[in-house]
Structure formats: structure tokens, C-alpha cells
Simulated scan of single mutants.
Amino acid sequence: MTTGTGTGTGTGTDTARGGWRLAPARLRRLGRRAVAMEAAGWRSIGRAVFRRPTVPRGASAHRYDGPIRSVLVVFLVLSAVEIPMVDLLTHRWPAVRFPLLVLGIWGATAMLGMLCGYLTRPHAVGPDGIIVRNGGEVEVVLPWDDVASVARRRRALAGARPTSLTGPDDDRILNLVVQDATDIDIQLERPTAIRLPNGPATVTQVRIAVDDGAAFLDAVRRHIP
């Protein structure tokens, strides 16, 4: 009994210490992710200003933000309107006014960066393969040699994150979801290593959302060997 108690106490202490050791690492990952998101937003704004969407030469662009585009525009307008209102209401209290203005401007800029990410980084289908994206952060290049088949199939994924992995470890699926759904299934020839914002992953299938599934499949037929 004494041995059991001692072992239990030690395990609990070790677990607690392990949790404390993991906390700084988790914070560093979150910090790097926040910086990456901020940088992606500014790059997307720059591309929108100079009208330079990231579509390779000879490839066709395929939008996927249709279901959420109007929502993003509404939120962007509301964020922009909110800034002068906050300035007017808090003009007498600089200690409150300036932090709120900075926060409001940052929020509007972040929303603009998100919208520009969708506008300037569409999916692309070209001679070298398929490039699938999700806003300013996710970009996965799939050469034709890695693509087994492409099929149009709408899947409802209620509550799914915009970028998520599902399935067992030996048959992982990357889901790039817009408005709780995907429209295109891309089956790969073999387990393929990809890089995501949270780290590398190996997948056997990629499911994406597109605004015009028929046009996407037509482009695939033109280019697939």
C-alpha cells in the first residue's frame, strides 16, 4: 500500500511538472502562429493592392469564398464604422480612447487581411498540378504524379474547423472547409507529406470547397495527364 501511494504521488507530481514544462512551448507555438497569421494578412493586402493574385502561369484560378464573402464584407464595414464611433464616444478619456482605437484599427486590418487572403489566394489548376488553399495561411501543392482521382462530391461537415484532419493515422484526410462543407474530393496515389500551419502531416486525400465545381473539374480534365 505504501509503495502504491508513493508511486501515485510521484506520477501526479511528474504530470504537473510536465504540464508546466509544456506551457511555455505551447505559448511559443501560439505566438509564432499569431505572427504568421498577421504576416499572411499583410502579404494578402499587399497583393490585393497591386492586383497580384498567386496563380501560376498557365493555371486557372478557382474561388472558394462565395458562401462567406458577404459576411466578411459586412463585418469589415462594421469594424470600419466602429472606429470613428469609439473615437467620438471616448474622446474625453485618452487612457481609454487610444487603446480602443488601436484595437479597433487592428481588428479592421485583420478582417481586411482575411478577406484579401481569400481574394488573392484561390485554388489553382495548371500544367504542374493542383494548388489548394485556405486564406492566407494554407497552401498545399499536389503535383499530378501524386493525384489519383478528382471527383465532385459535396460533404456536409457541421462544426468542422476551416482546416482539419480526419480519419485514422494511416488514412488521414485534409479538409479545407468553407461554411461547413467541401465540394471536391482529391484522392492521392499514396500517403503524401504536406505542411500545415500547425505542423507537418501525411494525408491520403484532400477535400476542398469551390464556388464552381464544374469549372474546377473541367480544368482538371484539361491538365491531368
Rank of each mutant, 00 (worst) to 15 (best):
T3P: 00
T3F: 01
G4H: 01
G8K: 02
G10L: 15
T11N: 01
G12N: 09
G12V: 09
T15L: 13
R17M: 14
R17A: 15
W20H: 13
R21V: 01
R21H: 03
A23N: 04
P24Y: 00
R26P: 00
R26F: 13
R26S: 12
L27D: 04
R28F: 09
R29N: 10
L30S: 13
G31N: 09
G31F: 02
A34I: 06
V35L: 14
M37R: 15
A39K: 11
A40D: 05
W42G: 03
R43D: 03
S44V: 00
G46C: 06
R47P: 02
V49Q: 00
R52E: 10
V55E: 00
V55I: 07
V55H: 01
P67G: 05
P67E: 06
I68K: 00
S70M: 09
V71P: 00
V74C: 04
L76S: 03
A80M: 12
V86F: 04
V86R: 14
D87L: 12
L89V: 13
L89Q: 12
P94L: 03
P94E: 03
L100R: 10
L101M: 14
L101Y: 09
L103A: 15
I105V: 15
I105E: 01
I105S: 10
A108T: 07
A108L: 11
T109G: 01
T109F: 02
A110G: 12
L112Y: 07
C116H: 02
L119E: 09
R121G: 01
H123N: 12
A124Q: 06
A124I: 05
G126W: 08
G136D: 14
V138R: 00
E139Q: 14
V140S: 12
V140F: 10
L142C: 10
L142H: 11
P143F: 11
D145A: 13
D146F: 02
A148T: 00
S149N: 14
V150T: 10
R152W: 11
R153W: 05
R154Y: 06
R155T: 15
A158H: 09
P162N: 14
L165K: 06
T166C: 06
T166F: 01
I173P: 01
I173L: 12
L174V: 08
L174E: 11
L174P: 08
N175R: 15
V178E: 15
D180N: 12
D180E: 15
T182N: 09
T182F: 03
T182A: 07
I184P: 10
D185L: 05
D185C: 03
E189H: 09
I194E: 12
I194T: 03
I194Y: 06
P200T: 05
P200M: 05
P200F: 07
A201E: 13
V203Q: 10
T204N: 10
I208G: 04
A209I: 01
D211E: 05
D212A: 03
D212R: 10
A214G: 05
F216T: 02
A219K: 08
A219I: 11
V220E: 07
R222P: 00
